[in-house]
């Protein structure tokens, strides 16, 4: 569940930094990167379920942000703007992955492209690590549009209205994707027996 942190508050009040970065202040841009790095990385990490792809998408997102920032007119919409860039980058990278996965005879081969799942530090217990890996795998299995909505809602704490703005779709479509995304996840988690009490207690 999403919980607002001090960093999130700072992100919401970073207009001065955005304005400076727009004028070409590299130090301000670096601060902007520092503020948003973790959020974009985690969005991509949950989308791809792998560190390398997440880093690639994060890097590309910030390059696009740097390119497009001077053209951003409404700095108050920076949050939805940066998320839109990140979402587009993630979708592009996903398409690239799928192209690579298609074999010479044009038949997609399951598992041809292997994504290394995220690894966790010793601070997490084995059960927590196992659950995190299982949840990432479950997320990876659902439809990519539903997956992105679930991630933005569950982990980025965005309102349905904000998600609709980022994805440029109606609010009802967002809710519908959320509904079917959660339903698909429920089935996957049940199939893998992840709905055990032991996981709820972690």
């Amino acid at each position: 569940m999403y919980t607002e942190t001090l960093l999130d508050i700072a992100m919401r009040h970073s207009e001065a930094i955005i304005l400076k970065a727009q004028k070409g202040d590299n130090q301000a841009f670096n601060k902007l990167v520092a503020l948003w790095y973790k959020r974009i990385y985690n969005l991509a990490l949950k989308y791809f379920s792998g560190h390398d792809m997440a880093m690639e998408a994060t890097q590309r997102t910030f390059i696009s942000v740097h390119k497009g920032l001077p053209k951003l007119r409404d700095t108050e919409r920076f949050r939805s703007w940066i998320y839109r860039i990140a979402v587009n980058v993630c979708h592009e990278e996903e398409r690239k992955l799928k192209r690579q996965a298609i074999s010479i005879d044009g038949v997609p081969e399951k598992g041809k492209v292997t994504i290394q799942l995220a690894t966790y530090g010793p601070e997490k217990s084995l059960q927590q690590q196992e659950l995190s890996s299982l949840l990432l795998e479950a997320l990876k299995e659902i439809n990519q549009e539903q997956r992105m909505v679930v991630i933005m809602k569950e982990y980025e704490g965005m309102k349905f209205r904000e998600i609709a703005e980022v994805l440029d779709i109606s609010e009802n479509t967002v809710k519908s994707r959320m509904y079917y995304g959660l339903s698909a996840l429920r089935k996957i988690l049940e199939t893998r027996n992840i709905t055990k009490e032991v996981y709820y207690e972690l």
């Binding site: 590299n26 880093m55 927590q128 995190s132 569950e154 982990y155 988690l189 709820y200 972690l202």
Partner: peptide
């Protein structure tokens, strides 16, 4: 399902993203 999804916490990026000169 939401309770389970909530168990997936944010990760600290393992490597720093440095953009000294964009």
């Amino acid at each position: 399902v939401r309770t389970l999804l909530g168990k997936l916490e944010d990760e600290e990026p393992a490597t720093p993203l440095i953009m000294n000169s964009p």
